[in-house]
């Protein structure tokens, strides 16, 4: 998957990952893909809730070595 931007929010607890992602989204263009890295176990569900609320899309969530990779289409 083509990733336009990686946002590293590892070791940040709520609301850190969402704040970091929202900041990156504000600087991105529609159609771009952001990969958010997070270790907060609440992050995948939080990001999905946010995405459905503001019409962005979570394309995929993977967990590799305790790190979530959350792919979001802006």
């Amino acid at each position: 998957m083509k990733v336009d931007l990686v946002v590293d929010a590892r070791y940040k607890s709520c609301p850190g990952p969402l704040l970091a992602l929202a900041e990156a989204v504000a600087k991105s263009s529609p159609g771009q893909v952001i990969m958010l890295l997070a270790t907060d176990p609440a992050a995948p569900q939080d990001i999905k809730e946010w995405a459905s609320s503001v019409n962005h899309r979570v394309l995929k969530v993977e967990k590799i070595n305790e790190v979530y990779q959350i792919y979001v289409e802006v």
């Binding site: 940040k12 607890s13 850190g16 704040l19 504000a26």
Partner: peptide, 20 residues
């Protein structure tokens, strides 16, 4: 410690991002 290490944002950072 959670705030100063960046694990948690400071309340003012949170507020400022909300204002944006």
């Amino acid at each position: 410690r959670a705030v100063s290490s960046g694990v948690m944002p400071s309340w003012r950072e949170v507020l400022e991002q909300g204002k944006k």
